[in-house]
Design a protein around this nucleic acid. Sequence first.
DNA 1: CAGAAATGGTGACCTGTATCACATTACCCC
DNA 2: GGGGTAATGTGATACAGGTCACCATTTCTG
Lengths: 206, 206
Amino acid sequence: MNWKELFPQFEPALLEQLEKEGVERNFRAGDVIMRTGQYIKSTVLVLSGRIKIYRENEEGSEFLMYYLGPGEACAVSMICTLQSQTSEVMAQAEEETEVLMLPVQLMDQLMNEYKSWYQFVIRTYRSRFDELLTVVDNIAFRNMDERLEFYLIRYVKNTGNKQIELSHQQIADDLNSSREVISRLLKKMEQRGRVKLQRNMIEWLS
Amino acid sequence: MNWKELFPQFEPALLEQLEKEGVERNFRAGDVIMRTGQYIKSTVLVLSGRIKIYRENEEGSEFLMYYLGPGEACAVSMICTLQSQTSEVMAQAEEETEVLMLPVQLMDQLMNEYKSWYQFVIRTYRSRFDELLTVVDNIAFRNMDERLEFYLIRYVKNTGNKQIELSHQQIADDLNSSREVISRLLKKMEQRGRVKLQRNMIEWLS
DNA sequence: CAGAAATGGTGACCTGTATCACATTACCCC
DNA sequence: GGGGTAATGTGATACAGGTCACCATTTCTG
């Protein structure tokens, strides 16, 4: 894949090194890319598709934090300069996804040699941190109906598609809620004219 | 104050520059050091005391994220290379606190010139991120009784003091709960022999 | 094509926690 | 030491959201 245009801010030399030392990998929808407790051996740059980053607890409940799209990188995996750090989160392909994997040993050198890489890391970390803050806000201060609305809006923004192809169960899992609750709230949203419900699909109106 | 021993990992040249360009400031318990929406003009290194970093919503409810102690730094304020970024969080002195404030313009240079500073920034960001993940876990997966216990344990660890000098109201604010709920849960914990309750003080047993 | 599985709808009920109202206790200070 | 105030205790009630039971419909699969 011709991914270089995804990173127009990178110097040519950096792009070349990424191409030489990185490995492209493909994942299908649903593939788990990284799991909690696993050692981080490479930094992940998303080339196409979409990855969801979520937290899992002991009982297997999930909690969605955010998505990574093309041109974005997994913050957690960029900062483990110390080798043999383990992941604190799960990463799973939401759709057909291509990524570039870079050995973590490379990070220090890239950081020192390329201003644009350094900027990229800083910006990545900063924006993931901000996104996490938003997550905290949502669960700390908002009710499920507001959180659901936020979830749907974010989905539409990320996919650029007003047809949300998810079952109520999937949404409930992402929000660590239950299907019945989500179904009822969606029904209410439909009555208020915000969405249109179909099987395996929610159409976002307005 | 002689704070250099707080950062034994820093090169002498770095310490010298920090001393020359940084400004020491004192805050009394309760002083707000940074508020949401405020422009970040300096990076904060904690020299003594304790700062709490929390999130505030529109209605004025609070939600504690974590504490910063001596030798630690505010991650948010380290990464705003782009000038005129605003803070997303509140920072408030929990007790008499001394900090070293460094102009943000300095960050780029320190980052490039001192390996140990670079390591420090990375480690700071990484550990704040992890702490935030723990926060997310707590509110997403745990009930108030567990969250309260986590809160008390963290307090004891941070202060090194089993006498927790807080009113129930303060705790309720930090956890975005209400006083009555906290009082009742504390009472239960006392019955189970985990704490001993006194006015304005909770003694952590075991 | 039949049976299984996934999806969604709905009512009854339960639990955790927020809220309100008010009583009690401890402490401070003139 | 008495009055005021902050901290705490406690019952009653309200409500969001989780759980259970069950049913209907659609889709998948052998």
